[in-house]
């Protein structure tokens, strides 16, 4: 009887203290939206992906959406970021707010002259490291064609260990149709950069199967 009592007390104390777990089970997702002139029209599709993510992410997970413009290594480019509360009811309210921010952005978005994808990825790494998420995803919604402002240095090795980099909706440009090697070269360049940084690289072009975005 005493033993049972002790076990019961242990179980209760574990519940009360929450028994902090050293390994994080939360997910962190940072989505980069290409808002360059050539890709601006695809932004509505990105909105659907964000809505899917809002419906999928659990309480305690983090989500940030940032635009890719001329200089993306900046907090100013973050459209919305949130670590959802652990209580489902509060988390649902936060998701509604998040959705509103994204909707506002989509309705007022303006095209940028340049596309600084590297800056955006570096910003994503910084943000996701801060969240302490167990699984970290960087979603790049872009055609992967980087165009930098003269003088911007982006030829930097990236530290992507533990990151899953997923390129979404990598559209073929008009020039790619002329010479498909350009497309493959572009994709291969990004894959090499991510893997050099010890990250995992994936491409999801079929947006009908959104569940594959966060699949391991």
């Amino acid at each position: 009887m005493k033993k049972l009592l002790a076990l019961g007390l242990l179980a209760v104390s574990l519940l009360v203290s929450g028994c902090p777990d050293t390994t994080s089970h939360s997910q962190g997702v940072y989505m980069l939206l290409d808002s360059s002139g050539t890709y601006k029209h695809e932004i509505r599709r990105a909105q659907a992906i964000i809505n899917y993510l809002l419906g999928t992410l659990q309480p305690g997970d983090s989500l940030a959406v940032a635009r890719i413009d001329s200089g993306s290594f900046s907090e100013k480019d973050i459209i919305a970021k949130m670590t959802f509360d652990k209580r489902p009811s509060v988390s649902n309210q936060q998701k509604r707010l998040f959705k509103k921010k994204v909707d506002d952005f989509v309705s007022t978005v303006k095209g940028s002259a340049y596309t600084d994808i590297t800056g955006g990825v570096l910003q994503a790494v910084e943000y996701l490291d801060e969240t302490g998420a167990g699984r970290k995803y960087i979603l790049i919604f872009s055609d992967l064609k980087e165009e930098l402002v003269k003088g911007h240095v982006r030829d930097i090795p990236m530290q992507l260990a533990g990151f899953e980099v997923v390129a979404l909706n990598v559209t073929k440009l008009r020039s790619d149709n002329v010479d498909p090697r350009e497309y493959f070269k572009r994709v291969e360049k990004w894959r090499a950069r991510v893997e050099e940084g010890r990250g995992h690289w994936r491409i999801v072009n079929d947006l009908e199967r959104l569940e594959s975005i966060l699949a391991d």
């Binding site: 305690g60 652990k86 209580r87 489902p88």
Partner: peptide, 12 residues
Amino acid sequence: SEMVGGGSYIGN
């Protein structure tokens, strides 16, 4: 999960 939090874990 509303009471003890949906994102906290004990072990796995």
